[in-house]
């Protein structure tokens, strides 16, 4: 470990080591972020994109259409 890493903090009120630390707040925030990502993705893909009128289609649809 290089000497330049911070060793102590002036306004630190307690020392929390790796074993005793559970980042529960981070887990909550990141869970909320996950939900936002999923919902926005679904909205963007299925509403904004697929609902955006004519779209470039391939031969696949033609086959289905004729069948």
């Amino acid at each position: 470990m290089a000497s330049a890493t911070e060793q102590s903090e002036t306004d630190q009120v307690r020392e929390i080591g790796h074993e005793e630390y559970d980042p529960i707040g981070t887990a909550i925030l990141i869970g909320i972020y996950f939900l936002i990502l999923v919902l926005l993705w679904l909205f963007m893909y299925f509403v904004e994109f697929l609902g955006n009128g004519p779209t470039v289609v391939g031969a696949l649809l033609t086959v289905v259409g004729l069948a």
Partner: peptide, 17 residues
């Protein structure tokens, strides 16, 4: 999930690049 959605767009609605 993202890759699956894009793949669905290609084979379901048949969107071609």
């Amino acid at each position: 999930g993202f890759i699956a959605t894009i793949t669905y767009g290609a084979v379901g609605p048949g969107i071609a690049m």
